[in-house]
Amino acid sequence: MLEISNIDVFYGDAQALWNISLRVARGEIVSLLGGNGAGKSTTLRTISGILKPRRGEVSLSGVRLDRIPPHQIISHGLAHVPEGRRLFPNMTVMENLLAGTYLLSAWKGRMAAVEEMGKIFPVLKERRNQLAGTLSGGEQQMCAIARALVSRPRILLLDEPSLGLAPVIVERIFEVIQKINREGVTVLLVEQNAHIALQIAHRGYVIETGRVVLEGAADSLLDSKYVKQAYLGL
């Protein structure tokens, strides 16, 4: 469904990604693992068009995403929950979700979509009139995921949803990710927390200093010596 082939990405003159290729099939959860500065977020930002690859291609069901402006990408069914949530802090939870329905196709059914999010994340319904900037970290993450989901994407990119959250909350959020996936949304998940990321994923990639160093089924990655040493602290 999503296919990235041989991309090189630069920040100015500094090369951040080297010949990265990865693919995500329909219905999968794929985890992208790696330490700080490995290039995980850069990969996601390239997929959603914020960065453009200097070489290689990004395509989603045959559409070349690297050839269209970033604001048009969501209309092809790809939503991106950015690193650090990036909510609109002076807008209420409700308004943040409405911003997620900006696409004309989603705007028409916005109330139903918001209602649906209230069922998945009851806490958002409770806090719908609260400013997003005043939510707790976990609530902000839920709001960010909900804001991406109201556009009814086919594939969801998640950038470090566990960052800075208490283990209980992380578990809750990963349950929701699995649930969303079961309902038919393909997921590409970036994580530093390899343990939990590989528990829910079907497959995974490990990147280091901008290169893919390992890929495979989630269980085999969990068992691999390399991942155990580098990311699980075993």
Binding site: H71, I73, I74, S75, R86, L87, M91, G100, S151
Partner: peptide, 24 residues
Amino acid sequence: SRFGVALRATAQDREAATLLGINA
């Protein structure tokens, strides 16, 4: 309005707004 929400979203976080399909 749809435009108003998009305007405020862009003002508060342009990149996040772009990801939601808003042409800043």
